[in-house]
Simulated assay, not measured.
Amino acid sequence: MWTWWRRLFEMVRFSDIKEIRDKTIPKGTAPQRDSEGSPLRTNQTVFSHLSRKESLGPEEVVAESVPSDVAARYEKLMRLAKDIGEKVTNDEEIAPSAILAELHAVIDLDLIQPLFEYAMSESANWRELPVHSVEVTLAALMVGNGLGYDTKKLLELGLAAFLENVGMYRIPGGILQKQTKLDDDEVERIREHPEASARILSRLGERYQWLAEVALQVHERADGSGYPKGLKAPEIHEMASIIGLVDTYVALIRKRPYRERILQPEAIRFILKEAKVQFPTKILKAFLNSISLFPFNTYVKLNNKSVGRVIATDKNYPLRPTVEVLYDGLGNKPERREIIRLSDNPLLYIVETVDERELK
Rank of each mutant, 00 (worst) to 15 (best):
V351N: 07
R357C: 08
A140G: 10
G230R: 10
R41M: 06
I253S: 07
N43M: 14
A98C: 01
I107A: 05
S35F: 02
K273E: 11
A139M: 07
S97V: 08
L319Q: 02
L56Q: 13
V307R: 11
E64F: 13
I20W: 00
L182C: 10
K315E: 07
K333Y: 01
E206I: 12
L100A: 05
K18E: 11
G144L: 03
A222K: 03
E92I: 02
G85Q: 12
S68F: 08
F296L: 13
I339W: 02
S55G: 01
Q209D: 04
A95G: 06
R320N: 03
Q32M: 12
V351S: 10
D16T: 14
P280E: 10
V250W: 09
L330I: 03
K255Y: 04
E260S: 11
Q177S: 09
E335F: 06
S68M: 06
E156W: 01
L154T: 13
E75V: 04
I84L: 15
N125F: 11
I271D: 00
T137Y: 10
F116M: 06
P321K: 05
T313Q: 01
V12F: 12
P96T: 01
S133A: 12
R336K: 14
L50T: 08
P257N: 04
A251Q: 03
V62I: 14
P257D: 05
L201W: 01
A215T: 00
S65W: 04
H132D: 09
G173P: 05
R52K: 13
L245Y: 00
V46S: 09
G308I: 14
E266D: 14
P58W: 09
T29E: 13
M11Y: 02
N332Q: 07
L155N: 10
L109Q: 15
A161Q: 06
E19W: 02
Y299H: 14
A139Y: 01
R33N: 06
D247R: 08
L231H: 07
G85S: 05
S202K: 11
L109E: 15
L245K: 00
P257K: 03
L100G: 00
L138V: 05
Q44K: 14
I243K: 02
P67T: 08
D183A: 07
R336D: 04
L109Y: 13
D83Y: 04
A101C: 05
E54H: 08
